[in-house]
Design a binder for these strands. Structure first.
Length: 277
DNA sequence: AAAGCACCCTGTACGC
DNA sequence: TGCGTACAGGGTGCTT
């Protein structure tokens, strides 16, 4: 499940292969993968267009084109890109949903078993990105900003951190890790966090995301997330609590627990993540 | 503002 | 062994 560090890792791996290249072939094998425009217009507009850069905003890949349009991709749960040499061909992955050939012959293959990922080709990227909160690794994301935004909030802190309109890029794994590191209970009412807790949380978010990127992202579980160059990330070896219910807390040794918040799993330590300030 | 739920999907885990 | 079913999960949209 790609979150900010995984999408950043993917962008970095796609960048050298795609920047300056143009698309000479575009095949959409699962129509609903293309959110907009319709598949026919998508193909026509992409053919011959070249990629100016490969960026990221939240969990979106952002590829401005020389045509003035921008290709945006959200991988959702199981979307992944592969880069294949011209001699290898595009392959025959049964989950292939989009395949694109570049002007140097390299194949860019998008596979997505659960078909949740989406491509957007738009004139104004804000059309897709406008609702997103700030980038958690940018200078504007300060402890002071976080403190102000949390003030008065009655919802649970974990659910709020997952809200992309609040902060862009955090997902289930990194939110659980950040709250554990900051020693804050996931059920805490957001507006009740103390200044010290908010400062710990702010620092922890930076630490877990930075660590995830430094380790080349997470390759987890059944999906064993594979990057465009065929490699695996390393960060799964550094996760402290995610998907470890019943295991001992690395900090205090007590059994980690799993609860459900907003139809989603939350992992935490009931001892060192205090329910009260 | 906050929360619940259906939906989109399929691989996997689990019960019988 | 084989079959059916529940479940997971990010995001959107709708409802309360």
């Amino acid at each position: 499940m790609p979150e900010l560090p995984e999408v950043e890792t993917i962008a970095r791996k796609l960048r050298p292969a795609l920047t300056g290249r143009s698309f000479v072939q575009v095949d959409v094998l699962w129509a609903r993968t293309v959110d907009r425009p319709d598949v026919a217009r998508f193909r026509t507009a992409l053919l011959g267009a070249s990629v100016q850069e490969v960026g990221r905003r939240g969990k979106y890949l952002v590829l401005p084109l020389n045509t003035g349009q921008t290709l945006l991709v959200h991988l959702r749960m199981t979307g992944k890109f592969s880069l294949l040499a011209p001699s290898a061909g595009p392959g025959d992955d049964r989950h292939m949903r989009v395949r694109m050939r570049l002007d140097d012959g390299v194949w860019v293959v998008y596979s997505d078993p659960r078909k949740f990922g989406r491509f957007f080709l738009v004139t104004d990227p804000a059309e897709v990105l406008k609702g997103l909160g700030p980038e958690p690794l940018s200078p504007e994301f300060t402890a002071e900003w976080l403190m102000r935004q949390l003030a008065g909030r009655q919802g649970e802190i974990k659910r709020l951190l997952l809200d992309q309109k609040f902060i862009a890029g955090l997902g289930n794994i990194y939110v659980s890790e950040a709250l554990w590191q900051a020693q804050i209970h996931p059920l805490r009412v957001a507006g009740t966090l103390t200044t010290a807790e908010v400062e710990r949380l702010h620092r922890a978010i930076g630490t877990v995301l930075g660590g995830g990127i430094a380790n080349g992202g997470t390759s987890l579980g059944d999906r064993q997330y594979v990057y465009p160059d065929g490699g695996l990330g390393n960060h799964q070896h550094y996760l402290q609590i995610y998907d470890r219910a019943g295991d001992r807390c690395p900090r205090c040794g007590y059994a980690l627990e799993r609860i459900v918040q907003g139809q989603r799993s939350t992992y935490f330590c009931p001892i060192c993540q205090r329910a009260e300030p």
